[in-house]
Every structure is written in C-alpha cells, then in structure tokens.
C-alpha cells in the first residue's frame, strides 16, 4: 500500500529524566530477540545490544555525578552506513527508518565501521531457536527473526510494530496517527517517561514540540548525519545546586 503521507518517525530522549535504570535495554532485548552475551563476550567486543545506556561519571568525591545517555541507532536522515553497503542490505526505507535486510547482508562490516555512533553489531554466532536458552524460548518474539551468523544487526525503531500499526489503521480505515499508534518497545518500557516517540513533522506531536526546545541537541550533529533521535540536555541547575 502506498502511503499518502509519510511520517518522519523520530525519538526524543530527555536526559534530565533518565535515571539510567536500563529498562529500555531490557525491553529492547526482549522485543527484538537480541542474543545474550556474557562478560567474556563483552570483553572481546562481541556483545550485541541495540540499546545501551552510556554512563559518564564526573567530579571528585563527594561531588560525584553520573550522567546517562541511552544510545541506539540514530536513524539518520543522511545515514553514513547505507552509503558504504556493497549489497544494499542496509538502506533507508521510505518511512525514513534505516533498515537492515539480513539475508542480503554479506557481513563485510563496512557499515559498522562507517557508523559514527557504533550502534551496528556483528552477529558472531548462529542463534537458532534451539540454541536459545530453553527457559527463554517461549518468550521469543515471532514478529522478529533470529539473525543468522555473520550478519550485521541493529535497532529498527521496532519496525515490526509499525507494520502492525499500519495494518490496524488500514482495517479501521484511517492513517497511522503521528503519536500513539506506533511506539517502540524501549519508549513503552521507560518508567521515567524520559523517552517520546512520534512523527517529527506533525506539529501536534510531543516529539515535534520537544524537538524545538532550547535543550534539544543531536549526537555528533556536525557530521551532517541528521539523526532522528533527539536528546534534551540536562539542566545546569542540577550541577550548580549540588556544588
């Protein structure tokens, strides 16, 4: 079905509200069948985590402060990863979401190296359903495939949820709403309501209003990647008050 209006799906993360609880990380892993990794894997750089909470500790005792930044695929409007893909396995879909087609991917990892945010992950193991821990098998999400060995995987803004939202909207004879119909798992799971999702071009959505805030910034904006994940920086009052 051709879309008459193509929403520009985007996310706003309020760093002032983020408590670093990692609920988004867990929600993402659960939703997208992201394989498990132990300490050894992580030390070897083989950990896969489409969503990570980056922590930076500043100051000296007793004036210590840790800042958190949830890091996921920035869903760039000018993605550097798609330009270097030799097989067009990674590409930008008409909905603006950067897709990754696993059977097309040859595992060259050009895209992972081109990505300035380091949010593309190489799958080192063959995760068939039968290698998944038995107690976790019944919670595998049937809407998301288990990625084969030797391909790159990454956050898709829970694109399968957009599919379902579109289908439901079509059944009800309307367009997908700019806010509410399609929500990625991390946003849904955030207990601090630090994350917002919607159509950045729709003036009625929360993300559109928040994106215009003076606190809004985008990661490595100077590279011209035009990310669709927008962060709201922490208020300076916090640091001043405690100093």
């Amino acid at each position: 079905m051709t879309e008459e209006r193509r929403p520009r799906w985007g996310m706003v993360i309020d760093l002032d509200r983020c408590s670093g609880c990692q609920a988004c990380v867990v929600a993402c892993k659960q939703e997208n069948n992201v394989p498990f990794s132990d300490e050894e894997e992580a030390a070897g750089g083989r950990e896969i985590s489409w969503m990570r909470v980056m922590a930076a500790t500043e100051g000296d005792y007793p004036h210590v402060k840790t800042r958190f930044l949830p890091l996921l695929c920035q869903q760039c409007d000018q993605p550097p990863c798609t330009r270097v893909c030799p097989t067009r396995a990674t590409f930008q879909s008409p909905s603006g979401i950067v897709g990754q087609i696993y059977p097309r991917c040859i595992g060259c990892r050009y895209c992972a190296n081109a990505c300035p945010y380091q949010v593309k992950f190489f799958n080192w193991y063959n995760w068939s359903k039968f290698r998944w821990p038995e107690e976790m098998r019944s919670s595998l999400n049937p809407d998301v495939s288990l990625r084969p060995k030797g391909v790159i995987e990454k956050c898709t803004f829970c694109h399968h949820r957009l599919q379902k939202a579109r289908e439901q909207a079509a059944i009800e004879g309307r367009a997908v709403r700019g806010e509410g119909d399609f929500v990625p798992a991390c946003v849904e799971g955030c207990p601090a309501t630090a994350m917002f999702f919607g159509d950045l071009d729709d003036p009625d959505t929360t993300v559109h209003k928040l994106a215009a805030s003076s606190r809004a910034f985008r990661l490595l904006e100077e590279l011209g990647t035009e990310p669709k994940v927008i962060y709201l920086k922490e208020g300076e009052w916090n640091a001043q008050a405690q100093a």
Partner: peptide, 12 residues
C-alpha cells in the same frame, strides 16, 4: 497492484 516494495515491508 502498487503495493509497497520497500524491503523492510516484508523482511524482518
């Protein structure tokens, strides 16, 4: 039928 031929419309 002028349906979507976007790769991620069918690949997951």
């Amino acid at each position: 039928r002028h349906a979507s031929i976007d790769c991620i419309a069918c690949h997951r």
